[in-house]
């Protein structure tokens, strides 16, 4: 009797779900998934009731009840396994979409930058003509020093509006973001980069290392209230199959004593050290006058594969 009841109940549930799906829920629902979810409480209620009721009613065949309970328990376990696997898959997918979204966002920002630089180019073209006119005027007046400094100024302007660090656009975007974050905090982050086109290292690894280094430096620089010049310099440079990453910032020598424990336990520095070591690199940090320097050498990171 109860068995039939359950089956009927299940059908009702499925019916309700399918109806609801049609009218209300726009999201697609896996029928099997729903069945599994609902069958667990239903079966447990049924099992409980048979266990209680059995002694009075269906005593004539105790074996049947035992088999029934065992079968249901196995069935429930299978259901849970199935749910577990589906959830696992779901999370995997979620993770994938999140990373894809991030990459897409980076690409969008990059596009935006391209747009910006395009419009900048237009205005530069405009300016160029005016500049030529000014230069012509200066030259016809034999004002050579004036013309020289004028030219130097405009070259400087072009260099300043440079958004290019590397052809790896994810890294380029990342560095641009960091530069603008620093800028909004009143810190100049000057980046000197000369990267090989292809690295054996993943971009994310490089991004983690650079991100941690830049964030730490930024924090350190922001702690200095009495220094006027807040400046961080970052060098990323290749030579002979090796890559050097070096970051340095102005540093308050007082902190050598007051923040002693932080020198070895800085946030993220442990991570950086670990990553560097895992990839056959060397990490070092030291003080130089009033600068704090972190230097990382990654060996054999580009060029021909062995």
């Amino acid at each position: 009797m109860a068995f039939i009841l359950i089956i009927i109940l299940m059908f009702v549930v499925i019916l309700i779900i399918t109806l609801l799906q049609k009218f209300k829920w726009k999201l697609p629902i896996h029928v099997f998934f729903v069945m599994v979810i609902f069958s667990i409480p239903l079966i447990s209620v049924f099992l409980l009731s048979t266990a209680v009721v059995s002694e009075i009613h269906v005593v004539n065949n105790p074996n049947f009840i035992f088999i029934c309970i065992a079968a249901f328990i196995i069935y429930m376990n299978l259901c849970i396994l199935y749910l577990y696997i589906t959830l696992g898959n779901y999370y995997k997918q979620l993770e994938k979409t999140t990373t894809q979204k991030k990459v897409l966002e980076a690409e969008l920002k990059y596009l935006q930058q391209l747009k910006d630089s395009q419009s900048k180019l237009y205005s530069m073209k405009h300016d160029l003509k005016n500049q030529y006119v000014v230069l012509l005027g200066m030259l016809s007046q034999h004002d050579i020093t004036g013309a020289k400094s004028y030219l130097q100024d405009s070259i400087q302007k072009i260099d300043d509006s440079n958004y290019f660090f590397t052809n790896n656009f994810v890294l380029n975007y990342f560095l641009n973001e960091k530069v603008s974050t620093a800028k909004s905090n009143g810190v100049t982050l000057s980046v000197q980069s000369f990267l090989p086109e292809e690295l054996h290292l993943d971009t994310d690894i490089l991004a983690v290392v650079l991100g941690n280094l830049i964030d730490n430096s930024l924090e350190a620089v922001l702690r200095l209230s009495h220094f006027k010049e807040k400046e961080i310099s970052l060098l990323i440079k290749q030579f002979d199959h090796n890559l050097l990453i070096e970051i340095s910032n102005v540093f308050d020598r007082e902190e050598i004593h007051t923040r002693k424990h932080r020198q070895t336990e800085g946030i993220g520095i442990k991570n950086v050290k670990k990553i560097v070591e895992e990839h056959g690199g060397i990490y070092n940090q030291w003080f130089e006058d009033n600068r704090y320097v972190v230097s990382i050498l990654l060996l054999d990171v580009y060029g021909e594969e062995d």
Binding site: K237, E246, I282, Y283, S295
Partner: peptide, 14 residues
């Protein structure tokens, strides 16, 4: 030794 290697190779790159 590792630090020495870093500092020496750094001289060529920096």
């Amino acid at each position: 030794a590792k630090k020495q290697i870093l500092m020496k190779l750094r001289d060529f790159i920096y």
